[in-house]
Structure formats: C-alpha cells, structure tokens
Amino acid sequence: MANTLSFSSETMKQYEWLLTRYPTRRAVLLPTLRLAESEFGELGVPEMRFVADLMEIPPAFVFGVVTFYTHYRRAGTGKYNIQVCSTLSCALRGSEDVVSRITERLGIGPGETTPCGQFSLSKVECLGSCDTAPMLQCNDDYHEDLTLEDVDQLIEQLRAEADGGQNG
C-alpha cells in the first residue's frame, strides 16, 4: 500500500519533541494519533498506516489503540461530531430530550452520520462538566446549560457554517 501521506514540517517537529517526552515509543502513540488527526482530519486506514510506518510499530497495534478509544475521529465521522453527554447529571437534567431533538432535526440516531457527511451524533459518557448539565461537545467545543432552543440554534448555526463552507 503506497502511502502518500506525510506530516508537515511543523507537525514533524512536534512529533520529534513528543518522542523526547515519553519513556517508550509505544507511549508516544496516543499524542501522535492526535497530531495525525488534526493534520489529516480523521483516522482512517491510510492515516493509521502512516502513523504505524512513521513510528515503526505494527499497524495492527495502532488499529487496536484507535478502536479502543472513542475520542479519536475515525474515518466516516461527520464534519461536525456532536457528542451528547448522557451520564448521571446530564441524564437527570434531560440529555435524552437533547438527543431526541437532534435526531428530530438531523434525521440521524446516536452512532449515525448524515448522508451529506456533515453531522455525526453519539451519546458519550461523562465529559466532566456536570455543573453545567445538560451539555454536549461539538468537535472541540463545549455547549453547556442546554435548552432545546439552544440545540435548535446550534444546529442552525452549524448548517449555515457548513453551507457557507461549501459555497465559499
């Protein structure tokens, strides 16, 4: 499998710095996957293969690590990855309603991605923001103290952004 991916020189510098910060090469895998994720946008088969080759560790090991965690963006994840916290505090404050509202608006259930590839929805365990329940995480941003109106507004905003991005 010819791999045409490569890290930019800036990312490569970060990777080399990481190597000096951990006791073993395998320990550097988690942060390196983060670098690959931000560099390539997602961790699909070519990206995992690239990281394995770069780090000289077995591809199967990388595959096992990526699939173990839920917080890496696997191939096929939408441009906006909406993760709704559904652990205790959020559940008591109505996270189920948040999920249903998103499902209603986007037409996808938890674990699914819209056919246009813009949105993914999942229910996740505690995101550590119990004081502002219910909450969700969209890509790297937290949206807290949600009401259903907030949810509608967020989706409208993301849709507008997505359309703007496509047209522009």
Partner: peptide, 17 residues
C-alpha cells in the same frame, strides 16, 4: 504482529489491520 484486539469492553474481539 498481524493480530490485535479491536474495540473495547463487550465489543472487543480479535482482528487484523
């Protein structure tokens, strides 16, 4: 090193890259 365990918890299972 062709084999690995993919996924987690009760979904984990042996697989190859």
């Amino acid at each position: 090193s062709e084999l690995c365990i993919v996924e987690r918890g009760d979904r984990s299972v042996v697989d190859v890259f």
